[in-house]
């Protein structure tokens, strides 16, 4: 069963994922403790986003096991999803519905109550409340990303998955995001994020994991101190990035 008090937020064992003939994850083993902010780093194609999509249960592994918050995700999908909030590359919103309509719809899917209060709280937190009645299609990408963040926070998940959350955000919104991540950490919740803004990520994280060729290349539990080693591991040649600049 899913346990909110589990010590490990994520346990991945020998996870393999291929897309056609391209191997993306090659037997990934990773344990991420609950209550920490973990940043996943790696060059393009290292497998960060794929791993996050697997944790969000949008992509299935070819082999290996993953448990989240103490539960095998293959067996307890809906229960784990109820404790997980995700902001991935695309905002995944209905363009012809307003922000409020989008959030109300997803609140129903998450079986939430006191929806009006919840919407007021999360939209204030991400700074979108003045445009609640605007259709999503009329908003900038950065604003849509904030709506997606509001949706992910609405059910107060134990585990927040953020895939390059700062992309498209202005500096004020990034500061807001940092405050939300800090708040999550102080509440004992878990954040797993990917980013390419390495320096900033190391300042706000408790743990950094560098993925290289679909496996863990380097792990640090003191990212701000291990900056040099992390950047060296991040910059090391990656077979999966053959076509890079």
């Amino acid at each position: 069963m899913v346990s909110q008090a589990t010590q490990l937020a994520v346990k991945a064992e020998a996870v393999v994922k291929n897309f056609g003939e391209t191997a993306v994850l090659r037997g990934l083993n990773l344990e991420l403790p609950a209550g920490e902010v973990t940043v996943l780093l790696g060059t393009n194609g290292a497998g960060k986003s794929t791993f996050l999509r697997i944790l969000a249960m949008l992509t299935q592994v070819d082999s290996g096991n993953i448990s989240m918050l103490g539960a095998d995700i293959a067996q307890h999908g809906p229960a784990v999803r109820s404790l997980t909030g995700s902001v991935l590359h695309s905002p995944m919103l209905y363009g012809d519905m307003s922000i409020r309509e989008n959030l109300m719809f997803f609140a129903e899917l998450y079986r939430l109550e006191n929806v009006d209060d919840l919407i007021a709280t999360v939209t204030a937190k991400v700074g979108i409340e003045p445009r609640l009645e605007h259709r999503v299609r009329t908003l900038s990408h950065g604003f849509q990303k904030r709506v997606a963040l509001a949706r992910a926070l609405m059910h107060a998940p134990q585990l927040l998955l953020l895939d390059e959350p700062e992309s498209g955000l202005d500096s004020r919104s990034v500061a807001r995001l940092d405050r939300i991540i800090d708040e999550y950490r102080s509440q004992g919740r878990t954040v797993i994020m990917t980013t390419h803004i390495v320096e900033h990520a190391l300042e706000i994280s408790d743990r950094a994991v560098v993925l290289n060729n679909g496996t863990v290349g380097f792990t640090s539990t003191n990212p701000s101190q291990d900056k040099t080693e992390i950047i060296a591991a991040y910059s090391s040649p990656d077979e999966s990035d053959e076509g890079g600049f």
Binding site: M57, T84, Y94
Partner: peptide
């Protein structure tokens, strides 16, 4: 087109 099918798949519903 809007990737919203994935948003439905993220929800804790079967």
């Amino acid at each position: 087109e809007g990737d919203t099918l994935e948003a439905l798949m993220l929800a804790p519903i079967s």
